[in-house]
Design a protein around this nucleic acid. Structure first.
Length: 347
DNA sequence: AACTCGGGGCG
DNA sequence: CGCCCAGAGTT
């Protein structure tokens, strides 16, 4: 049974939101973007931490802000440098979009970050969640920033079995959130995130420390583990990639990927080589790399080109980029290829 | 409305 | 080894 179907909604649920706020005042995590209302910094942090744990993205966020401290600096940067600062984070379209959006702010808003929800929503890579987060945190907007934490916390508080894999879940839990929405929505949104990640965790939640324990229906029913309900399971497919690490005198060949598949616009090694070079192929390394939706097997043939004419000929007939171990640090490679290069360099 | 896009950490 | 994470864009 979903809560909004129950027809017995307590008209005064606001004390739940306020209780959460008072907990947040004492227990807020000390994060680098908590001391500012600069919409640029809040925007960047919201993009960085989409589908990304705080611990995983914290260094990337700090390095990104240090290199691109404001919208104009980001807008004027080269896309490849933005991608470089996204290296290893995953979901690389975020980097491409955040760069384009910075140029949107410069061109369409005269370099001033928009303050209206509908305008912020127009920025590339900014969806309903992120627009709500920015407006509430920076501009006192009264919109709940519904994310995975909201799904989990609200479904437990109301013992609500609305399927979070349903495409209407965002609208449903947004409505549910408004029932407990206090005056300070910016802090409320951040409080839900802290509660969701520190207390109301997906597994083994710390209900003993939860400020909303007395208001939590799932807890009182001893059914915490049954919420949230998620029916749709993600399947992983097998994917096989074959690369040639073509090198000579410390130099090796790379090319940039397209933006239509995995690892958008990241760099990789040649995928095919002529038979003449195949003869130089030595050991083959097989790397198993796990992505969320794919079981990836990467086969990399080590090709040390012993013949200088063959090397020059191959370069002349293809559009590969020549790099070396030093310069490769200025390109963004997928994690497994990054590891492969580092391993080669140590030999 | 369903699919796709990374990588890390946890039980 | 499956699940989840400060979701958004595409089809």
């Amino acid at each position: 049974m979903t809560f909004l179907d129950k027809n017995n909604i307590d008209s005064n649920l606001l004390h739940i939101g306020n209780k959460l706020l008072s907990w947040y005042k004492k227990n807020a995590r000390d994060l680098p973007f908590r001391q500012t209302k600069d919409p640029y910094k809040i925007w960047i942090c919201e993009i960085v931490f989409q589908q990304t744990r705080i611990n995983q993205g914290l260094n990337h966020y700090n390095n990104f802000i240090r290199r691109f401290p404001d919208v104009q600096t980001l807008a004027e940067a080269e896309e490849n440098e933005v991608l470089l600062y996204w290296k290893g984070l995953g979901y690389y379209s975020r980097a491409i979009n955040v760069h384009k959006a910075a140029q949107q702010v410069m061109n369409d808003y005269d370099g001033v970050f928009p303050s209206e929800y509908e305008e912020i929503l127009k920025l590339k890579g900014v969806g309903k969640y992120t627009a709500a987060a920015i407006t509430s945190i920076c501009f006192d907007g009264k919109i709940p920033a519904v994310d995975g934490n909201f799904y989990r916390v609200l479904s437990r508080i109301f013992a609500d079995d609305f399927d979070i894999s349903n495409s209407r879940a965002f609208a449903y839990f947004s409505e549910l959130a408004t029932l407990i929405l206090p005056e300070n929505v910016g802090d409320f949104n951040q409080a839900m995130m802290d509660l969701g990640s520190e207390i109301c965790k997906p597994k083994n939640p710390l209900c003993g420390e939860c400020p909303l324990r007395e208001n939590c229906l799932a807890y009182s029913l001893n059914k915490i583990s049954e919420f949230p309900v998620k029916t749709k399971k993600v399947k992983s497919e097998d994917l096989h990639l074959k690369y040639y690490f073509v090198h000579r005198n410390g130099q090796f060949l790379v090319r940039q990927r397209k933006d239509d598949f995995i690892w958008k616009k990241l760099f990789e090694f040649p995928v095919v080589i002529p038979e003449e070079l195949e003869a130089f192929s030595k050991e083959v390394k097989t790397i198993n790399h796990k992505l969320t939706h794919k079981n990836l097997t990467i086969e990399i043939s080590n090709v040390e080109v012993a013949s200088e004419p063959a090397w020059n000929n191959f370069i002349a007939q293809n559009q590969y980029l020549i790099t070396d171990f030093e310069a490769s640090h200025e390109k963004s490679f997928p994690k497994p290829l990054e590891n492969y290069i580092q391993n080669k360099n140590q030999k």
